Computed example of a mutant assay.
Amino acid sequence: MTLRLILVRHAKSGWDDPLQDDHDRVLNPRGRDAAPRIGTWLATRGYRPAEVVSSTARRTLETWERMAPLLGEGTVMRRDPGLYHAGAERMLETLNGCAVSPVLMLGHNPGIADFAARLLRKPPDSPRFARYPTCATLIADFDTDDWSMVAFGTGTVIDFITPKDLEG
């Protein structure tokens, strides 16, 4: 059996209020536009999550809220405070605890870029991958039937996209 991960960095957020706590920042207009475009891209390719695991930051939750209507019913949503600015090791630990496939994980840089790079056998052929810009989305498969068996260097790239790639 194969397990599938959909790894999404939150969409672009605003810095309008310098006094606002980072955890509470919301999406800016560009981010509010990008999240549903990525959601549509996922839906048209059949990349529909069975489980979503998200950081508790407002911008990650809002990213999912804007994607969810495009990806159908029946998705289990789990908010994980440990994913807020998590490093690659913490993200892998969270993934190892998942139960169904596909999993969509929503997180932040710099951790998500490091996690994506370390998770794969070989990176995608994209100049944007190393930077993992806002709303970047990786689809990766793992040759196992148990998330607890997923380790760094075991993923195979299926797809990678950024909002910029969809501007066509």
Rank of each mutant, 00 (worst) to 15 (best):
M1F: 05
M1S: 13
M1D: 09
R4H: 07
I6Q: 02
V8S: 00
V8H: 00
H10Q: 07
A11H: 10
K12V: 00
S13R: 00
S13G: 02
G14I: 02
W15V: 01
W15E: 00
W15P: 01
D16A: 15
D16M: 01
P18R: 09
Q20G: 01
D21T: 04
H23Y: 14
R25D: 13
L27I: 05
P29V: 01
R30Q: 14
R30V: 14
R30Y: 06
R32A: 15
D33V: 14
D33Y: 08
D33F: 09
A34L: 00
P36V: 10
R37W: 08
R37I: 02
G39W: 05
G39V: 08
G39Q: 04
L42A: 10
R45V: 14
Y47Q: 01
Y47W: 13
R48A: 14
R48D: 06
A50T: 09
E51H: 12
V52M: 13
V53A: 01
S55G: 02
R58V: 12
R59H: 10
L61D: 00
L61R: 12
L61W: 01
E62K: 04
T63A: 07
T63M: 04
T63S: 14
T63R: 05
W64K: 00
R66P: 01
A68F: 02
A68E: 13
A68K: 05
L70N: 07
L70H: 14
L70K: 06
G72V: 03
E73W: 15
G74A: 08
G74N: 08
T75S: 11
V76T: 14
V76C: 11
M77A: 10
M77L: 15
R78E: 13
R79Q: 12
P81Q: 09
P81H: 11
P81R: 05
L83R: 04
Y84F: 13
A86K: 00
A88S: 15
A88Q: 06
L92C: 03
E93F: 00
E93V: 01
T94N: 00
A99G: 06
A99H: 09
V100C: 01
S101P: 08
S101T: 14
S101L: 10
P102F: 12
M105I: 12
M105P: 00
M105C: 05
M105V: 07
G107M: 08
G107E: 08
H108A: 03
H108G: 04
N109F: 03
N109M: 08
P110N: 05
G111L: 03
G111V: 02
A113V: 13
F115S: 05
F115Q: 02
F115A: 10
L119E: 02
P123D: 07
P127E: 10
P127D: 10
F129C: 06
A130L: 09
A130M: 06
R131D: 14
Y132D: 07
Y132I: 10
P133W: 00
C135Q: 04
C135K: 01
A136C: 10
T137V: 07
L138W: 00
D141Q: 09
F142Y: 13
D143K: 13
D143N: 12
D145W: 03
W147M: 13
V150M: 11
A151Y: 07
A151M: 11
F152W: 05
F152C: 11
G155E: 02
G155I: 11
V157D: 04
V157C: 08
D159E: 11
F160R: 03
F160S: 02
I161L: 09
T162N: 10
T162G: 14
K164D: 15
L166Q: 06
